[in-house]
Write a protein that binds this DNA or RNA. Structure first.
Length: 411
RNA sequence: GGGCAGGUUGCCGAGUGGUCAAAGGCGGCAGACUGUAAAUCUGCUCCCUCAGGGUUCGGAGGUUCGAAUCCUCCCCUGCCCA
């Protein structure tokens, strides 16, 4: 295997990273690879209980991709073992116990999404149940003996919870060790993660060392702030942009980020060449509107291509700025044996526009509902759902549904 | 094992017999405004077609005309002691 010159490799590897521990070990590993022709093993762990990838995940995945591009071996570890255990205390909905089938399914879905970023041909994908499942209880005790309670409690999250009297399950101490065991099992040279993973990555080093394996280099990527501009991007906070979301969503959500995030997002979530970043920083200050549109376009095009990004842009202008109606939307047709006259509240809820009649009522009271562009003000209005032309119901700015009636069947 | 303090609507958190579908904050939704799905301001935020009704306050029973609030048992969490 031939690799690019080491300084070239370093330049690429170091782009955008928050921290490399320890830095000199990275150089040594690169030298060794060059000498032996053996690619470095670069590890990234993923949590199969949440298989929906978003731009936050893309930061570290793109780093993994860069390693692939210079010829190293990417290993994606699906944490199916811990996924199958779940959280025995049952208190955390973040970690529901999954069945084998679910973890496989989620692992597949994760990989499929990650393939939008990684080179799937050159990605090794492994499930950690492969080795963790076969550890005996005495193996586990031995592993647990490699770390101390005091050091465990150094982890920020544990320390905080411990001090504020929140529960910490013993098994939670075992998770970082399990993750470290993964590094031992695949003999990772490098492990990637967000800065929030620093503790876990370092445990990996410690455990490898006590197994007399050359310890991995930990590369931490910055955490991408979510669309709210405050918290880290995460699904549970609903401030995320999913990798497989439609381009219009990506575009609109990107535009909603605070202006001072524009540069950071360009840096962490896009492929714009490093040289351009400085100019972008200046542009973001000077003309935030245009720069943010460019960001939104860039992100949409990374995942959907240029044409889709163009369309997303015009869609946004039409719907949000001009208050128009989109071309594609959900459509609903009520069964022929259905009672033809239906109250507007029922209609909205059954068409999936609102989650309850109460919500529908409130929206109408707030003048937020219209039918083919005409505001609805009477909550007792009735509609014949079978006869007459199809029409569009709109709730708020961006919720639409087309109700199909007898005419123009498929439109 | 013992003692103490707790478990309230998506989250945090007030409420200790009726005036409680339950203060306040956060989040969410809508309207106005805006380059924006940002910021700001205003309204809404359990379910049921209004009046009114129905289901909620860890779980199961019970007391009472009436219980988130009192009693019993159980489950869960934290702290202290062993």
């Amino acid at each position: 295997m031939k690799f690019p010159p080491i300084d070239k490799q370093l330049a690429l590897i170091e782009r955008g990273v928050a921290e490399i521990v320890p830095e000199d070990a990275l150089v040594e590993k690169l030298r060794r690879a060059e000498k032996t022709g053996e690619p470095l093993i670069v590890k990234l762990g993923c949590d199969p209980s949440r298989p929906d990838l978003h731009l936050g995940h893309s930061v570290v995945l793109r780093k993994l991709r860069q390693f692939q591009d210079i010829g190293h071996q990417a290993v994606l570890i699906v944490g199916d073992f811990t996924g199958m255990i779940g959280d025995p205390s049952g208190r955390s909905r973040e970690r529901p116990a999954l069945t084998v089938e679910e973890t496989r399914e989620n692992g597949r879905s994760y990989f499929e999404q990650a393939s939008r970023i990684l080179d799937p041909e050159r990605t090794r994908i492994v499930y950690n149940s492969e080795w963790l499942e076969n550890l005996s209880f005495s193996d586990v005790i031995q592993l647990a003996g490699k770390y101390t309670v005091a050091r465990m409690l150094e982890r920020d999250d544990f320390e905080k919870r411990y001090k504020s009297g929140e529960p910490i399950g013993i098994h939670e101490f075992l998770y970082p060790l399990a993750q470290a065991q993964d590094s031992v099992a695949i003999r990772a040279d490098i492990e990637l993660g967000g800065t929030d993973q620093k503790f876990n990555l370092l445990v990996g080093r410690a455990v490898q060392q006590s197994e007399r394996i050359e310890p991995q280099v930990c590369i931490m990527m910055p955490i991408l702030p979510g669309t709210d501009g405050v918290e880290k991007m995460s699904k549970s906070l609903d401030n995320y942009i999913g990798i497989s979301e439609p381009p219009e969503e990506m575009y609109g959500k990107t535009l909603s980020i605070p202006d001072d995030l524009i540069y950071r997002w360009f840096e962490l979530a896009t492929n714009v060449p490093t040289e351009e970043l400085l100019a972008i920083k200046a542009a973001a200050k000077k003309e935030p509107r245009n720069t943010k549109h460019r960001l939104a376009w860039t992100i949409a095009s990374m995942y959907h291509g240029d044409d889709a990004a163009d369309q997303a842009r015009s869609h946004f202008e039409k719907i949000i700025i001009k208050g128009g109606i989109p071309e594609n939307m959900e459509s609903v047709r009520f069964a022929a044996d259905e009672e033809p006259r239906m109250g507007i509240l029922d209609l909205m809820t059954r068409a999936g526009l609102t989650s309850s009649n109460g919500e529908a009522r409130r929206l109408i009271a707030q003048h937020a509902v219209s039918m083919d562009g005409k505001k609805i003000s009477d909550v007792r209005m009735e509609v014949n759902v079978h006869t007459g032309p199809s029409f569009v119901l709109k709730a708020g700015k961006r919720r639409f549904v087309r109700i199909l009636r007898e005419e123009e069947g498929g439109s």
